[in-house]
């Protein structure tokens, strides 16, 4: 059995879980290549026009591997925490893909509820059954995968750098170097360190979020709002850069909330879509860094 894993959306965050789970079940993994020009072109070709850049790129990844595997993993991540959601497009991702790309192999339709191990196991049971009939083996693979995932940490923290920016936004915009045009490398070359939301622990986030009138019901909103709020208040960084995909519904709310909250703390919003030119992006980053330098001197 060949299982295809597209390298789009939250792949970077849950890579160990999916890899271990399918490998333990004895499946052969076909992983798409890192996002590149062809991925984007394929994505734009197949995906519905109104979708955001990361969703289009996900379509591109699927299109790349669809002819080489028997089953494609399309993680329909519904909820990561209790009473929180991701984005409606994640909830309808398998439907979007199978109705947009022709000649698809089988895909995983099962929803993922990751707020507890038991709920997550429901996904593993159904998907595992497609590959292996032995329930004990599925259970074992699942346990192993969860363990691997728990040992895996994402996040960047250039502590030693004298000048630092907080890099906020959805994980797939931060970690996909094609989407953000290597922003990490660019910033570091300018002598600016990068910090991401993982440095803030859960309790501090929960406390910060209580200050809002209404508890935000998106996991990304909660993470980014509390991170930027704490980073600005405690002066953990010199400025904040928010990478946002064009027409992202969640960002349209979160960026407003952040702007109203941090007031005149340096804040740069970088909008990315399939037409973003690298030169313009460079200029904006350089201007922002110049401004930060002038403020601190």
């Amino acid at each position: 059995m060949k299982v295809g894993i597209p390298k789009g959306l939250l792949y970077n965050n849950y890579k160990p879980f999916f890899h271990t789970f399918f490998e333990e079940l004895g499946a052969e993994l076909i992983v798409s290549s890192d996002t590149n020009r062809d991925t984007l072109n394929n994505g734009v070709k197949y995906c519905v026009d109104e979708a955001c850049l990361p969703v289009k790129i996900f379509h591109g990844h699927v299109a790349e591997i669809k002819d080489h595997c028997d089953l494609i993993l399309i993680p329909r991540i519904m909820q990561l925490r209790e009473r929180e959601f991701i984005c409606p497009k994640f909830c309808g991702l398998p439907e979007m893909v199978v109705n947009s790309i022709p000649d698809m192999p089988r895909v995983t339709m099962e929803p993922i509820y990751a707020m507890s191990k038991d709920r997550l196991f429901k996904w593993a049971e159904v998907v595992g059954h497609e590959i292996h009939n032995n329930k004990g083996r599925v259970k074992k693979a699942f346990e192993e995968a969860v363990q691997c995932q728990l040992n895996y940490k994402t996040g960047l923290n250039d502590e030693t750098s004298p000048m630092k920016v907080a890099l906020a936004g959805h994980p797939y915009n931060i970690y996909d170097n094609y989407i953000n045009m290597n922003i990490l490398k660019k910033l570091r070359k300018l002598g600016v360190g990068v910090v991401t939301e993982e440095i803030i622990d859960e309790d501090a986030k929960a406390k910060e979020i209580k200050k809002l009138y209404k508890r935000p019901f998106w996991s990304f909103a909660r993470d980014n709002y509390s991170f930027t709020s704490i980073a600005a208040e405690k002066k953990l960084v010199n400025g904040i850069i928010y990478i946002s995909s064009f027409a992202c519904g969640i960002d349209s709310v979160v960026i407003e909330l952040i702007k109203q909250n941090i007031e005149d703390f340096p804040f740069l919003v970088l909008k990315v879509d399939e037409h973003t030119g690298e030169a313009g992006l460079d200029t904006r980053i350089e201007a922002f860094v110049d401004m930060l330098e002038r403020r601190s001197s």
Binding site: C47, V48, E50, P88, C91, G92, M96, G249, I250
Partner: peptide, 16 residues
């Protein structure tokens, strides 16, 4: 409305 997240999903399904 432009950018409506749930309806983008349904727009992807309607052609089928």
């Amino acid at each position: 409305p432009m950018g409506c997240m749930p309806e983008i999903v349904s727009k992807a399904i309607l052609p089928q």
